[in-house]
């Protein structure tokens, strides 16, 4: 099968490699930014295009990968579905839940497979955490605390820095944890959120969520794009007979290069795994297309995650809890 990559930034490049690892061919790399499309296309011996919308209907393409800015997802999903292509859509599924619904309806109507890349469900540490909790290691779970983030992404002028487009850390980043909490602990009942969403004098976002699940479990989730550097993930699940924790800073490998003139460098901890979680989500997606498996995450899950993030942002604006 042939793949078109729409949006040739970091995520587009990553998914191109995963597709190749799954035995697929990258046929088209499309990006409005000409050098981005050309660069990725050269590395994967693909055709470069500068209009993602036109690339959607390229004849030889079977699968469309959408790694463009969030607000463009809906139109691209609809166009790809209309062209009969299977779709891998990066998270967040879309900028609004209404957009997600339209995208799902389009895929259903066209009978194509629509996958939303909530990759955290495939991360080995998150799966190990889920196994501990569901295996009863801490008794009945009562409290989930999750933390994710680091530096504000994107250069000045990037769409990440426009809260209208990206939704800030809550919609773009914390959505991973909102989805995972629902995956493990079931449906949410209500959500309260505070989010900085600052532009001046420095652009920082810091989102603090308290969520009550229908099961009674409380989830406390922090998303940060307010740190000067780095990236960190923490989890802590408390149960009635124990507690289990994860911290990405407790890594088996870290390396710090010596830099002669430019001062101290950042230590980046590393957690190597033999098969990347991105590879696992691709295997799930391809298995679904081939009819050999059902995927761990559905478009409906992607929609629900956007609904949760939307409710969080609504709560932040109202300064009151929002029922889901």
């Amino acid at each position: 099968m042939n793949v078109a990559i729409l949006g040739c930034g970091g995520m587009g490049r990553l998914h191109a490699q995963m597709a190749v690892n799954c035995g697929l061919r990258v046929a088209v790399c499309a990006d409005k930014v000409r050098p981005a499309a050309a660069g990725l296309a050269k590395d994967f011996q693909a055709k470069a295009m500068n209009d993602p919308m036109a690339a959607v209907s390229a004849k030889q393409v079977d699968i469309v990968v959408i790694t463009t800015p969030t607000p463009t997802h809906k139109a691209l999903v609809k166009a790809a579905a209309a062209a009969g292509k299977h779709i891998f859509c990066e998270k967040p599924f879309a900028r609004t839940s209404a957009d997600c619904r339209q995208a799902i309806a389009a895929a259903d109507k066209a009978g194509v497979k629509l996958f939303v890349g909530h990759v955290v469900r495939y991360f080995q540490e998150f799966e190990a955490m889920r196994a501990q909790v569901q295996g009863g290691a801490i008794g009945a779970p009562g409290w989930a605390k999750l933390y994710r983030g680091g530096i504000y992404p994107g250069a000045p002028g990037s769409w990440f820095r426009d809260y209208g487009q990206s939704g800030g850390v809550t919609l773009d980043c914390m959505i991973h944890d909102l989805d995972w909490v629902r995956y493990v602990f079931g449906e949410p009942e209500r959500i309260f959120c505070q989010a900085l969403m600052r532009k001046e004098p420095v652009q920082v976002d810091y989102s603090q969520v308290t969520m009550r699940m229908k099961s009674g479990v409380i989830a406390t989730v922090i998303g940060t794009w307010a740190h000067p550097a780095g990236f960190r993930v923490k989890m802590e699940i408390c149960g009635d007979s124990g507690m289990v924790q994860f911290d990405s800073n407790d890594a088996p490998l870290s390396a710090q290069p010596r830099q002669a003139a430019s001062g101290p460098s950042m230590i980046v901890p590393s957690n190597p795994v033999s098969v990347s979680p991105y590879q696992l989500e691709w295997q799930d997606f391809i298995g679904w297309i081939n009819g050999t498996s059902t995927p761990r995450v559905t478009a409906a899950d992607g929609l629900r995650a956007v609904e949760m993030a939307e409710a969080a942002l609504k709560s932040a604006a109202k300064r009151q809890p929002v029922n889901l």
Binding site: A140, G142, W143, T210, I218, T220, G239, D240
Partner: peptide
Amino acid sequence: HCELGNQLHKKTLKTDDLGSLN
């Protein structure tokens, strides 16, 4: 704003055992 829980020590405590405050 505050969510209270009492699910960590339900068998031994009647009071809340966790509060998540904003």
